[in-house]
């Protein structure tokens, strides 16, 4: 490979990693909900869309920076998630029906309503937040003067990636070190045992759904400086989140991070070398490959050896 080709490849992989960091944040939200409640939230992308519209409204009326709007969007989405779980999903989990996937179909209904309400309020035009740093970039040669190859990265992508890292770190601390985080993990592992240990399972479910929604809402705020926004955007991100969850292994947080990064890099590679239109197909090729070759998720490759002993 010649030097320019290496540059393109490295550039592609790096921007893929940045994208993957954001994907991981979306995936973690879904994986949390899946682990604790054992249902797939098909309104996940739509919740992200709501978060993005909150950031958009704050930017266009009060000129608040999209990154700062996380502080508004995350609590708002938390409340929305709590509301959905308490008044819609919880009652359905108790209903006895022929089709066991009722809750999944319910989340589809919720997603439809959210997307349609957004269309009515904001019309289906494409919206952006034209921040002044949107097109800024930083170069490798700024830091390393004598570098043999040149790599440039978009500034907002980098900031978003760092924010995603910070949020993931915060979540890791919450789940690992606090009492409530431990209760959530206990509920995910074994609902009945957690109940016997005095964990308020109902409350944990509500909190988890709120937390998952808040995570995906803040991912939306991180996405909006670099992405455009329209009401039907949710569906594709729901699918992305699902692919990440399958790739990383169901209910595994670390898996979701690894899965998100892999997906980001792969998608970036497909759009560089096969054309933009094929990027969604690349996403699903990964999905199918994961289903056929590593049905337990990426993380199972590392844990299998331990079981063998």
């Amino acid at each position: 490979m010649t030097a320019p080709q290496v540059e393109v490849l490295l550039q592609t992989i790096l921007s893929g990693l940045l994208l993957g960091g954001l994907y991981a944040l979306i995936g973690i939200g879904m994986t949390l909900i899946m682990g604790v409640m054992k249902i797939i939230n098909l309104a996940h992308g739509e919740l992200m869309m709501v978060g993005m519209y909150i950031a958009y409204v704050l930017f266009s009326t009060f000129h608040i920076d999209p990154y700062l709007s996380i502080l508004v969007a995350a609590p708002a989405l938390f409340l929305l998630g709590v509301f959905l779980q308490k008044f819609l999903i919880n009652p359905v989990m108790k209903v006895d029906a022929i089709i066991p996937e009722n809750q999944v179909i319910l989340t589809v209904g919720i997603g439809m309503v959210l997307a349609n309400i957004a269309t009515i309020i904001f019309s289906s035009d494409y919206k952006t937040t034209p921040v002044d740093y949107a097109t800024k970039a930083w170069y490798l040669s700024d830091i390393w003067k004598t570098s043999p190859i040149e790599i440039s990265l978009s500034l907002p992508w980098t900031v978003s990636f760092c924010c995603a890292l910070a949020i993931t770190g915060g979540l890791w601390f919450f789940l690992g070190k606090t009492d409530m985080g431990k209760s959530i993990r206990a509920t995910a592992q074994d609902k009945d045992a957690a109940l016997l240990m005095g964990v308020n399972v109902e409350k944990m479910r509500v909190v988890t759904f709120g937390l998952g929604s808040a995570l995906v809402g803040s991912a939306g705020c991180l996405f909006i400086p670099i992405y455009y926004l329209y009401p039907d955007l949710g569906g594709q991100f729901t699918l992305t989140a699902f692919v990440i969850t399958i790739l990383g292994g169901l209910g595994s947080t670390v898996g979701a991070i690894v899965g998100g990064l892999i997906l980001g890099v792969f998608e970036s590679l497909t759009s560089t070398y096969a054309g933009m239109g094929w990027a969604p197909v690349g996403r699903f090729v990964i999905f199918l490959a994961a289903l056929i070759f590593v049905p337990q998720g990426i993380m199972s490759l590392f844990t299998r050896k331990r079981f063998g002993k």
């Binding site: 819609l88 009652p91 209903v95 006895d96 009722n102 319910l106 589809v108 439809m112 349609n116 009515i120």
Partner: peptide, 17 residues
């Protein structure tokens, strides 16, 4: 779509079959 979604939600909660 809102009407369809609301109908779907109502059906699932009250008449799941």
């Amino acid at each position: 779509h809102t009407f369809f979604g609301i109908l779907l939600i109502l059906i699932i909660i009250y008449l799941p079959n």
